[in-house]
């Protein structure tokens, strides 16, 4: 396999670089690899667009205010405070 086809064929590595690029700055070598790869690879160009969107969706999902209805039962809370008092009394 020639040097060029190692770059143009390796979508596994190209998609890793796409993910890395969304978070950090790529090295020169990595940037060159990705640029050459994407020129000829429709699938990875599509991957890049889709994974960028998925990243935004994940971000939105995590940033929704956490459910206000996530609370503990009164019974559980009562028990929790009892264990605190127990431990306070021991000291």
């Amino acid at each position: 396999m020639g040097v060029l086809s190692k770059i143009t064929r390796n979508c596994n590595h190209a998609t890793l670089l796409i993910e890395k690029k969304l978070i950090t700055t790529l090295s020169l070598r990595e940037r060159i690899f990705l640029r050459i790869h994407l020129i000829g690879c429709d699938a990875c160009r599509l991957y890049q667009a889709q994974t960028t969107k998925i990243g935004q969706m994940i971000k939105n999902l995590f940033n929704e205010s956490p459910g206000v209805n996530i609370t503990l039962d009164d019974e559980v809370k009562k028990e929790m405070q009892e264990r605190i008092e127990e431990k306070l009394n021991k000291n």
Binding site: K6, R9, N10, L46, K53, Q56, M57
Partner: peptide, 24 residues
Amino acid sequence: DGHWNNEPAPKHFGIDEYDPLQSK
């Protein structure tokens, strides 16, 4: 060689027209 296999390779689907900033 690490190239996408045909079946699992990315295809166009609904996400391409979807705007996550506009809708959940």
